[in-house]
Nucleic acid binder design. Structure first.
Lengths: 214, 214
DNA sequence: ATGTAAACTTACAGACGTTATCTTATTCGG
DNA sequence: CCGAATAAGATAACGTCTGTAAGTTTACAT
């Protein structure tokens, strides 16, 4: 077996393993698509380290998972915000934001699942006893990107787009379609889907958010 | 402890435990919302029976889960079909079908998750080795209800509803919204959602499937 | 040389799916 | 009415996984 016992890190740089652990956990979560299925021991194997070594860098399994989630969620929001930058008008920006949403999910289906299709972090740990639910950690995460969507839509309405509904209702409508198309693609990858963009574009334009002027 | 060792079933009626096991597994799946998290031992505890007793009635864990899934999926399709029965015209039937979809999900969120938000049966068992994927079991399940939706929409178009797209595209669009709104409600139950019906009705009418005539 | 950071070894206590074997209550043949 | 067959379960156990705690080794920096 590969018994070379891992090149030890020099003094100040114990941080390096922390980074490699996050990297390993990230890769595994991308494959598993579910934080509950991630095991400390699998992360350790992946990083070429024994399981207890992880506890020098993370209090417990939940901390490790939350660290990864925070990273990925930040990258998700950054990616969507950057996509809007190149836009000419608010409706174009909204379109780009939606397409970026789909692109992120296509590139990182596992991470998408972990971020948006599982309940508050580690329901299995709640069942284990001890803590009284500690909800309120990750709901905020989904909320951030939702409010960014509301604002993007409001800018469209301010620019003259006409719709029967207000921005927050439209945001729910759009998010619903985006999430739905993504989740179905992930769950049934072998069905002959039309391109995801066609679906979401159809709903977005039918809702009156296609172009600014009348 | 409750050491009364369970009233034994008479000769011909060993089937009774089978029923109770299905019942217990069904209840647990409703709570867990994930077939992978269901444990044989939990089913046994719930039914007041020792774990190996299950193997007299089901070949293995997968068979038990599949039996439950088949039952629930049948009920789902029946529920949607019955909802259409009371309709006056094709568009009303479509509306009722959509509302029934939402109602089923609201009444049985856990079962909805198991039926429509997890990949082919037991991905964890595939990883375990032995079998070469055996896909093709449950995809058919989702397909049945999808084709029923296509037909319901086609009847609307035949009755004079005008839309820019064909029935199968519209079916994907509608299913996307239905699934999206359901999954978001399940994943973030504490957000201040507008009623699910409002969202799906909006998309359905915007798509031109609100009323038959012009 | 020594203190200490970084990682290791060992170990516990519990869960899981599943098999092999044993017990007991019921039913049927006589 | 009684003994044998059998169906419906229970016990015990194996092998594997899991998260994590305690204590130990190694190698670098001073």
């Amino acid at each position: 077996m590969n018994k070379a016992p891992r090149k030890r890190n020099p003094r100040g740089q114990g941080e390096r393993l922390r980074g490699e652990l996050l990297e390993a956990a990230t890769a595994l979560l991308a494959e598993l698509g579910d934080a509950d299925r991630l095991s400390i021991r699998a992360v350790a194997r992946r990083a070429g380290v024994t399981p207890p070594s992880i506890y020098r860098h993370f209090k417990d399994k939940q901390s490790l998972v939350l660290a990864v989630l925070e990273e990925r969620f930040g990258e998700f929001n950054r990616f969507l915000a950057e996509a809007e930058a190149a836009a000419s008008d608010p409706c174009d920006a909204l379109s780009r934001r939606c397409h970026a949403y789909l692109e992120f999910a296509r590139e990182h289906p596992g991470h998408y699942r972990v971020l948006f299709s599982t309940k508050v972090p580690m329901p299995s740990l709640r069942n284990a006893g001890r803590e009284p639910a500690s909800s309120g950690e990750r709901p905020r995460a989904g909320a951030i990107s939702f409010f960014a969507l509301v604002e993007a839509i409001q800018r469209c309405l301010d620019a003259g787009a006409e719709s029967d509904h207000d921005s927050s209702f439209l945001a729910v409508e759009l998010w619903t379609v985006l999430h739905g198309v993504v989740d179905l693609h992930i769950t049934y990858p072998d069905l002959p889907w039309p391109p995801a963009e066609e679906i979401t574009d159809a709903v977005r334009t039918q809702a009156g958010l296609g172009k600014s002027g009348p």
